[in-house]
Design a protein around this nucleic acid. Structure first.
Lengths: 252, 252
DNA sequence: CGGGCCGTTGACACAAATCAATGTCCGTGG
DNA sequence: CCACGGACATTGATTTGTGTCAACGGCCCG
């Protein structure tokens, strides 16, 4: 295991500290985690279903999807992970993958050994807490996806995914125009929303009527508020505006 | 905060130790957690949406659902918690509820202060790990629900929920007949599967054709294997048969 | 005895799936 | 430089699963 000291874990640390309190020393522990870089081509599984992994996968660049599938082969994306996300931090505590990780576009991944993560968590309760909390944010997103797929019609579903991604990419600035890159195909969107690719296509055309377009891996939203209304989007679940006062530490 | 020492946390401890390794001393810490009993009537919210909670809710008796809803009022159950489940252990680390907790039948709840849980986790890395892992099991169930609601048709969805519940209630013994109590209504099943109550009704009738009935809050399955086939059910995600060898401890 | 919750049934409407073809772009190799 | 192949997007015709609306029935409990 080579220990390249790329400064790439910065975004991960920022994610953690945006929701949890870590001392300088603890922050250094995170940045000094050993990593092993790896590349994944578009549509390449870099963690297979059922595989027993000994490392977590951090997305430096690109976009990855968590895929689940039934025995009939019908695929469903269960989570999307953008650059800066630890795609399977949960594997530290649950090393048998119950879903596959697949790159949706050429992506670079940093593998971080479970051993190092476990050691950091065991030595510093605040780090354990930050990891736990980070996993729980993913879990709340998952709960929202159940609602999305279970209770919304096609335009609303697609709009909701676009809103969530805009928010997570921090592309949204005001009530008006928003634009960001989202390197996935219409078929991927279908896998994420529980719809068919053809219907995604038609739905996107209907969304164009309110000024939202997804073309050439690029999302352009003319009227953010209008999209939010269609999506019935409330960003509370992303735990982003979490007040410092609400952050409670294990270490008290 | 009264500190009733009911021996009711036993099932919770058993859940934890079935997947994580805890020393005798750590186990005692769990059993000695202070609790406050509370009753909830059927269809009563005992944790409201958006509420800031300072305790976790443990289900001693009954059945509770995690409810999410859109602005239009359409409800979606995001998780079911049976007796012995800690319904919102995640609230320790994420105290603002993004979903409501509602009793589906008369239930009794034990409230456990976050302070005590946090103290136990901070003092014992193995306990922190066990809590984290327990939350991740719920998370994997959630991921399966996304698949269920996103990719399966009505008979398959309902069958899958029944299989999962049979498994979690430990009602399944062999390949043949299975029966267990599941104190919820058809409308609740509809909220859990993203279907309408009328369609649930018709779907249940179609499942009766393969010998599976849900009547009077009771599930009776004549042919388990047949139901599993309809449901496309694979219990791996429940992390139940997890081998001891696969359990890895933070404390090494 | 009456009212409400829950379950049941039928007729009909509609959103999304399916099936099938065609179009467009882009990289690659002749 | 052009022809080819493949991935992705687009479109139309048709089918189908599920929702919607509306009514009725059973049963428990007050």
């Amino acid at each position: 295991m080579d220990r390249q000291r790329l400064a790439n874990l910065g975004p991960f640390l920022r994610r953690l500290t945006s929701r949890s309190v870590l001392s300088d020393h603890e922050q250094r522990q995170i940045l000094n985690l050993p990593v092993h870089a790896r590349h994944a081509r578009a549509n390449e599984d870099f963690v297979a279903l059922g595989e027993f992994v000994d490392h977590a996968s951090y997305v430096v660049e690109g976009l990855v999807g968590r895929f689940d599938q039934g025995s009939g082969g019908e695929r469903q994306i269960t989570a999307l992970h953008i650059a800066g996300d630890m795609a399977d931090l949960h594997s530290v505590v649950q090393p048998t993958a119950t879903s596959a990780l697949q790159a949706l576009c050429p992506s670079t991944i940093l593998q971080i050994p479970h051993g190092a993560l476990r050691a950091a968590a065991a030595a510093h309760p605040a780090i354990a807490e930050a990891f736990w909390r980070d996993c729980m944010v993913d879990s709340m997103i998952l709960a929202q996806w159940v609602v999305n797929v279970g209770r919304r019609d096609a335009p609303s579903r697609v709009a909701h995914v676009l809103c969530e991604m805009a928010w997570r990419y921090r592309a949204r600035r005001g009530p008006g125009r928003v634009a960001f890159e989202m390197p996935m195909t219409q078929a991927h969107l279908a896998d994420a929303t529980g719809l068919t690719p053809v219907h995604i296509n038609r739905t996107l055309r209907s969304l164009a009527a309110i000024g939202t377009v997804f073309r050439h891996k690029f999302v352009q939203i003319e009227d953010w508020d209008a999209l939010v209304k269609v999506a019935d989007f409330d960003p509370a679940y992303l735990q982003d505006g979490a007040e410092l006062a609400e952050r409670i530490s294990l270490v008290n």
